[in-house]
Structures are given as C-alpha cells and as structure tokens.
Write a protein that binds this DNA or RNA. Structure first.
Length: 464
DNA sequence: TCTGGGGTCCTTTTCCTT
DNA sequence: TCTGAAGGAAAAGGACCC
C-alpha cells in the first residue's frame, strides 16, 4: 500500500506507462525473446455452469437432521511413505527438503538406488543443503522430538539427528488421494474436496446416514478406506461443516467423533479460539488481547463488540462461530481461480548482478504456469508476479489483459511488464508468476480442475 | 519455528469513468 | 474545459489453509 510513492503505482489496464525511476528496467534480464501477444480464441462463458452443483437441500424432510462429516486422513504423507517403507514404522521420519535437487543431492542421482536408510546425521555435508528446506510433515515418532511441519531442516536436524529424511513425492500422495476419494464416493456421493487429504461429506440423505447419528456410515467409510488403501482416517460428524471439522480433531488417529447440537457447551466452548478453521495466528492474538481465549469466552461477547473490533463481516462470523452456527452447503464442484508457480532461490539474487540466472528462472516459471493452464484447459486474463525480498517483505504486481492467455510467451510478456514496476534495487529470495481470472479455454470440455491437486511432475522416488 | 509452495478469500487502496 | 463526487473495477496486501 505504501509502495506507490516513487514508483509507477497502479497500472491501468493493458498499457503501462514507462517507468522512469527504476534503477534497472530488468528488461535485459530476460535472455529469451519476448513473444508477441497472440490473439486468443474468443471464449464464451456458457460452459462455466456445466453440471449444476449437487447440493443437499436446505429444507429437510421431517425426522432428518443435517449430518455433515469431515474426514481427515491421519498423517497422510507420512502414512503413504510408510506403506512403501514399512521398515521405518515407529522410527522418526521427516518428509520435506524443499527443492527436488536436495533429495537428489542427498541420495544420489539414481532414484532407483534411493532407500530410506539414511538418517539426517549421515550427511556431513548437510549444512550445504538444508539451509532453505523445511519439513512438510513428520511421523508421530519424529514429532515426539519436537519436530513438526514448517520447521527448517537445520532445526530438525538439531532436534532429532537420527530422523530419516524422505523427499516429498506428490505423485504418490495424489495417487492415494484419488484412491480414497473414489472409495468414499461409492458410499457417499455428496463430497466436497478440500485438500489432498481431507473432504467434507453430507450423510443427510444417504441411506443409512442417519443411523446412530452418522456413526454407522462413518465406520463403514473408515473401514472401506483402510481395506482399500491400508490408510487410516479420522472422521467427525456434526450438524454443519464448522463443527464437523472440529469434531474430526477430537479423536485422532483412526477415530470417529459424533457431535450433536447439545454438545456445544460441553465440547466446543472449552476449546481455544484458534481451533476454529478460519481463526489463525493474527486473529487469535487479537482475541487474546481482548481477553477472549476460549470459544466460551467468545460466545459471551456481544455482536456489537465483535463487529467493532473485527469489522462487520469477520465480527459477525465470529459471533456465529461461537454459537456453532454454519449453514454453508457442501461445494461439490469448483472451478480454478488462479494458478501460480514460485520458487525460492538457493541464495538471494540481485537483479543487476544475476540477470542470466533470474531470466532463466523467470522463463521456467512462466513455462510451468503455461503448462499447468493448458493441462487444465483454462486461460487467464490477469497476470502477476510476486517477489519476496531478503527481508521477507513480499510485494505483488498484477496486470489485466484485454484477452485471456495461456502461452508461456504471452504470460512472460505480461509478467515482465509487472516486474518493471518493482524497484529491484535490493536482493530478493523468491520469484513467482501467477495467472488469475481464469476461464475455460474450450467451452465444450470441462476444465478438469481438481481443487488442491498439484500439477503433475516427475516423480522423485520411484516404487522400489 | 527463522520461515516452502500452491491455493482461496477478504479488505483496503487506487484508478477510471460518468 | 475544469472540478468534484460517486461507484465500480482493478490492484495490492494480508490472513488463512493444507
């Protein structure tokens, strides 16, 4: 917001006034030719609503209560890895490491020779590689040592040097994600995808979904997933998504929790506010400052006080949350909003000094986004860049084009215009490219988009 | 805990048009 | 032609999630 002064400021539509104040136009960073903007196909919007969303009806026949389930796979990535490496069961294992090259450097160039027998402390050269990596997840045995998600690998190596390090293998996780969701759909067809490892389900009208307040259905699904994949999950069943999500945390791993409306006071109000999906570190801190620690505390607040402190929307939402109110329906169909690729460099780069390297990275990001768009059969009208400086300050610049694009050259051209509006006089650690305002490319074909599914990439670790 | 990557959604600010 | 108000769209930033 304060970045306007001394810079070119917001762009207008397509035309961007030439920036005079930039120390380096950055244009010459790009060592590949910038292609001219192609004329994209006219893209009708009629296909957007192909297949009306399947939703539970709002008004239920007498005797029915909403039975919404939240299903969360237990330690999903780690569990998938343990299926492949059963010898690691019970041992501390961390998964992560950032770049693919890290795993390759650590484990050698030949993926087929990799195994899971190499603890962190076996790598004397570890410091050279772990600096920027973080842990994606860790097994329960590793968490015992204080190792957890989003922790730097250096820190993890200090806390638990005997931990085994495995590279992230999204292909495998996607594979198992598809498997368990297909199993669920055979039993309960009203499913909302919310991530690789979790879904919401609506049991309300599924035959047997009301039995034992949803317990029978939850047991059936849990058992079917285990038989089909060998993986366990935790399920919470409640009158709505808000409560179901919290209930699925109650009894982990491999548990089921049934939460009824009358359980609000005894089971929800004692919980800390941050247990609610949507109350993060910032909101939690602000609530604490107001003396509001638990959801019970939150329930004592007036609507007026909450809207005064948190704004009309968020305040009203907090007020409803404390009362367990949430009437959102499941979204069984969704279209992509944006697609992006970003990368953190192995060292901080300076535009003036590292032109060649940056140009190559920038081109690769544009090519990756382009490939992602084409794979999903969508195009986008807004192109943007993101830069994270060495002080971790992040800025973005966007530009909306008159016509949607999906070609790497077009994306690169527009993104380069955005880059020129950023003062690149200091080192930065991350560069990202994003395309948003997406629409279907071919109106006859659905986009095929699956929420939270990552683009296909080469597998890091083949099946042994 | 010294901080990756890919998303969504919301709020505020800025710009453009009338 | 200039100016100001108002409203909408775009841009930017931030919070949050997995």
């Amino acid at each position: 917001m304060s970045s306007q002064q001394g810079q070119s400021g917001h762009s207008s539509q397509v035309s961007e006034p030439a920036s005079q104040s930039m120390p380096d136009s950055f244009e010459d960073v790009f060592d590949l030719p910038i292609l001219s903007l192609k004329t994209p196909l006219a893209t009708p919007h009629t296909a957007l609503n192909q297949g009306a969303p399947l939703q539970a009806s709002d008004t239920l026949p007498q005797g029915f209560k909403r039975r919404i389930a939240h299903l969360d796979m237990d330690a999903f990535y780690a569990s998938v890895e343990l299926l492949r490496y059963p010898q690691l069961k019970g041992l501390p294992v961390v998964i992560g490491g950032g770049k693919k090259s890290l795993a390759q450097q650590l484990k050698g160039a030949d993926p087929s020779a990799w195994n899971a027998q190499t603890p962190l402390n076996d790598f004397p050269q570890l410091k050279n590689y772990l600096g920027r990596g973080v842990i994606t997840t860790a097994t329960y045995a590793a968490r015992h040592f204080g190792v957890g998600s989003a922790m730097g690998l250096m820190k993890a190596a200090q806390l638990c040097p005997q931990a085994y390090l495995l590279p992230v293998d999204f292909d495998q996780y996607r594979h198992y994600s598809k498997e368990f969701k297909e199993i669920i759909l055979q039993i309960c067809p009203v499913m909302q995808n919310t991530g690789v490892d979790e879904v919401y389900l609506d049991f309300t009208h599924v035959p047997g979904g009301q039995r034992e307040n949803g317990l029978s259905m939850a047991k059936l699904i849990q058992r079917s997933i285990f038989q089909g994949t060998g993986l366990t999950c935790s399920i919470g069943v409640a009158p709505n998504k808000l409560l179901a999500k919290m209930a699925s945390e109650f009894n982990k791993p491999n548990g089921i929790s049934i939460l009824l409306e009358e359980d609000l006071q005894s089971k929800i109000w004692p919980l800390a506010c941050k247990k609610v999906n949507g109350i993060g570190p910032k909101a939690s801190e602000k609530l604490s400052a107001l003396g509001i620690l638990s959801l019970g505390d939150l329930a004592k607040q007036t609507l007026d006080r909450l809207t005064t402190s948190f704004g009309p929307n968020y305040g009203a939402w907090l007020y409803a949350v404390a009362r367990g109110q949430d009437d959102r329906a499941l979204e069984t169909h969704s279209e992509p909003v944006s697609m992006s690729r970003e990368t953190t460099f192995e060292r901080d780069l300076l535009a003036a000094q590292d032109k060649k390297e940056l140009g190559a990275i920038f081109t690769r990001l544009c090519e990756q986004v382009s490939a992602d768009l084409q794979r999903k059969n969508v195009m986008g009208k807004t192109v943007g860049v993101k830069i994270k400086f060495d002080n971790f300050k992040t800025i973005t610049r966007d530009q909306t084009l008159s016509l949607p694009v999906d070609q790497a050259g077009d994306i690169r051209h527009a993104a380069a215009q955005c880059l020129k509006r950023i003062d690149l006089g200091r080192r930065f650690r991350l560069l990202g490219v994003r395309v948003s305002s997406l629409e279907p490319k071919d109106p006859l074909k659905p986009s095929g988009y699956q929420p939270n599914r990552l683009p296909i990439q080469g597998s890091l670790l083949q099946e042994p």
